[in-house]
Design a protein around this nucleic acid. Sequence first.
DNA 1: TTTCTCTATCGTATATTTACGATGAACGAT
DNA 2: ATCGTTCATCGTAAATATACGATAGAGAAA
Lengths: 105, 105
Amino acid sequence: MAVSKKEEFTQEEIWLADVAKSLSHPARIKILKMLNEMNSCMVGSLVDKLPLAQATVSQHLKELKRVGLIDGEIDGPKVCYCVNTKALAKAKSALDKLFNKIGCC
Amino acid sequence: MAVSKKEEFTQEEIWLADVAKSLSHPARIKILKMLNEMNSCMVGSLVDKLPLAQATVSQHLKELKRVGLIDGEIDGPKVCYCVNTKALAKAKSALDKLFNKIGCC
DNA sequence: TTTCTCTATCGTATATTTACGATGAACGAT
DNA sequence: ATCGTTCATCGTAAATATACGATAGAGAAA
């Protein structure tokens, strides 16, 4: 694009769009589910169960971390990721609010 | 990207990611709000209130229409867009389900 | 029919995303 | 100290997204 116009919107709109962006790839949706389902949340376990290279998974994790939906904790040579419940609740509430506001034609 | 790997996920994951993608730009968030707030939903009215060129707004509307969140109805030389309540409800329910499933670390 | 208005689409430029292999940094184990 | 494991980051290629001006088409209005 020539120049991004994203600054011209409200902070709420920008933030919500950003959260939506972090959910806009099936791998990231799946990662969030897996982080909750699996007992382990090591990156390696995720890579094993995704049809993506390690570097790509790491990139997706970075995007989820960027918006705060997950946290990563260093555990020796490994890294354990987990869902940030608080951020998730905030996102859910904001999306609910949006959907309720929209409603009808 | 070299090759998209999006087909390697479930239909549900792909669809949900697609809905999220359609919400991943503040202009589209704002458009959805405006379609509900304004009595008129002509494209021109949207263009007037957005910091974007007409062609760009048209492109954003196309993206929202692609995933079914809005419908466009031709009204003489104008086009009246409105939110698709059913699609919106489906999206909200799927997102709720996802968020509830994820929950905690 | 000519003109005006409204909107979609085309063409194009630039930015961002997605993907991967290769490399590097951190740490545990030998 | 060296080696193997784990993961992030770099470099890079290709696909997509964002933005705009220009144009085309459809219909109202003159």
